[in-house]
């Protein structure tokens, strides 16, 4: 039987753990709200950008002068995986689920004889991927100093990604991030950004929309817009990711708080029983001592 003092210590330590998880949950909830607002505010830009790029892409598609960002390099031998994770842990399966998706993707590509390069954003992903794919890691972006993700961060990543593309380092780039669905559900997503993939409703957009004049030419506008569109997609992914991270942390900490509560209940019962048992034993000793006289 565990002695009473040990149990008491145990209970108080679980109680302080519960305080910490409770606090983390509340912090995550507040951050989640901000992250969601940011994601919400960025939506109009991303949506318009997507629509314009789609309609331009549809009209330039197939022509010889289509920019390489749209048409691709003509091969798909080298893949760049941009894996976005959190800088911090304690957020349930958030990091592992992205890493798992990226790893499956990388292994499929390797099995098909392609070359894989990995760019990680956020140190948790780097730590996990380094175990088995260390040879393929080409770069890492550290956002641990960043309190609030701004467009500047996305632009920095985009410039790096685009410079590598211009230098011919890879043919296809794919983003890996968690799409925010709700507090309890984040969906690991792979999204190809280079070459640009017109969305499914691109055809409708061009049919229904007015015929635009372009100033300067369509190709020039497209050449200007595609890098911006890549930056916008990265920005959207970062925002979705940070909202997902906070959501995942919030539900993970909620669970932890509940578990700690259960554990405290169990330990308290054990403590009370032990105490009672000790009293009973003592009484028996006294009574049998008295009877022996």
């Amino acid at each position: 039987m565990a002695n009473l003092k040990d149990l008491k210590n145990r209970i108080s330590s679980v109680k302080s753990t519960r305080k910490i998880t409770k606090a983390m949950q509340m912090v995550a909830a507040a951050k989640l709200r901000r992250a969601q607002e940011a994601a919400e505010a960025a939506r109009p830009y991303a949506a318009r950008m997507g629509a314009v790029v789609d309609s331009l892409a549809a009209s330039v598609a197939g022509s010889e002068s289509a920019p390489r960002l749209l048409a691709g390099t003509g091969s798909d031998n080298v893949h760049l995986l941009v894996v976005m994770t959190a800088e911090r842990g304690l957020c349930g399966g958030f990091n592992s689920s992205i890493v798992k998706l990226a790893r499956i993707h990388a292994q499929d590509l390797l099995a098909a004889g392609k070359t894989v390069k990995i760019l990680t954003v956020g140190k948790k992903g780097r730590e996990q991927l380094r175990r088995d794919l260390a040879d393929h890691m080409v770069a890492h972006v550290d956002l641990s100093e960043v309190k609030r993700i701004g467009y500047e961060n996305a632009r920095g990543i985009a410039q790096d990604v685009l410079a590598r593309f211009d230098a011919g380092e890879y043919d296809v780039a794919t983003l890996f991030f968690n799409r925010f669905e709700s507090v309890i559900s984040q969906i690991p997503t792979a999204q190809q950004v280079i070459p640009a993939k017109p969305s499914d409703n691109a055809a409708e957009a061009t049919d229904g929309g007015a015929v635009y004049d372009y100033e300067p030419s369509e190709e020039q506008i497209l050449a200007d817009l595609l890098p911006r569109s890549v930056a916008t997609q990265i920005f959207t992914a970062l925002l979705e990711n940070s909202a997902s991270e906070q959501g995942a942390r919030m539900s993970a900490m909620d669970n932890a708080t509940r578990n700690a509560g259960d554990m405290i209940d169990r330990l308290s019962i054990e403590y009370n029983r032990s105490r009672q048992a000790a009293i009973t034993t003592e009484l028996i000793e006294i009574i049998s001592g008295a009877e022996a006289l």
Partner: peptide
């Protein structure tokens, strides 16, 4: 520079 007023023909410019 270009000035757009209501009814301007559809245009996209950088």
């Amino acid at each position: 520079e270009m000035t757009a007023m209501p009814g301007h023909s559809p245009t996209i410019t950088t």
